[in-house]
Design a protein around this nucleic acid. Sequence first.
DNA 1: ACCTGAACACCGTTCAAGT
DNA 2: ACCTGAACACCGTTCAAGT
Lengths: 231, 231
Amino acid sequence: VAKKAKKATRPPARREDALSHERVVEAAITLLDTHGEEGLTFRALSKHLATGPGALYWHVANKYELLVAATDAVVARALDTVRGDAKPREAIHRVALAMFDAIEARPWVGAQLSRAPWETAMLRIYERLGREVVALRVRESAQFTAASTLLSYVIGVSMQNTAAIQFVRHELPRPTNREDFLESAAARWRGLDPNEYPFTRGVADRLPDHDDRKEFLAGVDLILAGIARLA
Amino acid sequence: VAKKAKKATRPPARREDALSHERVVEAAITLLDTHGEEGLTFRALSKHLATGPGALYWHVANKYELLVAATDAVVARALDTVRGDAKPREAIHRVALAMFDAIEARPWVGAQLSRAPWETAMLRIYERLGREVVALRVRESAQFTAASTLLSYVIGVSMQNTAAIQFVRHELPRPTNREDFLESAAARWRGLDPNEYPFTRGVADRLPDHDDRKEFLAGVDLILAGIARLA
DNA sequence: ACCTGAACACCGTTCAAGT
DNA sequence: ACCTGAACACCGTTCAAGT
């Protein structure tokens, strides 16, 4: 009790609703989630936080840093949910699916990862995949390539998946369910010029009843099979 | 001769420097190449073409369409340079490298492909890879997955490669050559927290003397090895 | 130390007016 | 049919002024 009273000047009473780097980033995430990437504006964000746009610049250097921080927070959380008690192959599947789901739920994460892959978010994923590559007993000289290949694939597919979803939202008339979307995409493929697109036309029928996540993991397993052969 | 004179009204004399969809797209490509993605502005573009911004809208619907058209043109040309007289594995390597080089030379192509992968440019690449998958005698039910995996990987790696290059341009002080860049990236990796990034730190020494294109093709071969095993 | 909001230098896009 | 360029409705960012 005495200690508390010792100081004459008390720290300024922190208002309950005071801004902070964390609160700004958190608000940015909700804005990104609710209104998409183009919904994140310093004006909209400051309104959401009941302040002026200039206030945000006290806590955040600029929009780029804000997007980096939001992406990093989301990726870190997604990786935290991955339980680490599995064998390497299963662990890789889990990390891959965690990213697939995170990016599917938030297309802006995929866009940002590809825009600035040298930031920490990407490193986090690389590290997780790399550890499992080691656990797979890949020889040291091949670990770098193995982890890089997995990373590129996981991010690449996840982004193309969300792109397909964004396509639905932007180009198709009304909210469309997965089945209808795949059917309409297949119809488009079937309508392609047979001379220019024989292959794509040919596999169009595969589109309607294919399972994204299964295909995705099948691709991961293709790479793992390749890694195993070279290890 | 008589036929030519038949019509009383001749078609309006086309000015040599008249605009056209093609000229606008071509000018956009040079602007993107010289000043990067943020250099493409309707004002800058119209200035380049010695006209007003409004004139461009007569030939192009909006900026999105312009970027799509520019990307499509560039991808189509890149694929046209790929000679088609090789065995499947070699042909896949050639297509993969052609895209790798095209995206490395023009980072905006990679960004646009990931932004709108449902446009024709992506289909062109998919088709080319798919034909070789067929030539590899992959069984029909596996062709779709095989081609998709290759496509995701090729685009994914190419984008991350250009991202590394953009990183150099934006974050490093002066024009840096490849060696210095890789050395500085390795230094950063070595400086990571050993508890959080044991793997990444461990492979840091691999970074300086690794060969992008070789690693890239090694990854392609990993996938091809996996495909072979499942076919 | 932190917040406010008007002001600055840009965008993409539209549209009346011209040829 | 095609072009012009001012005008509109936005941006991200800055900064003097406030508490």
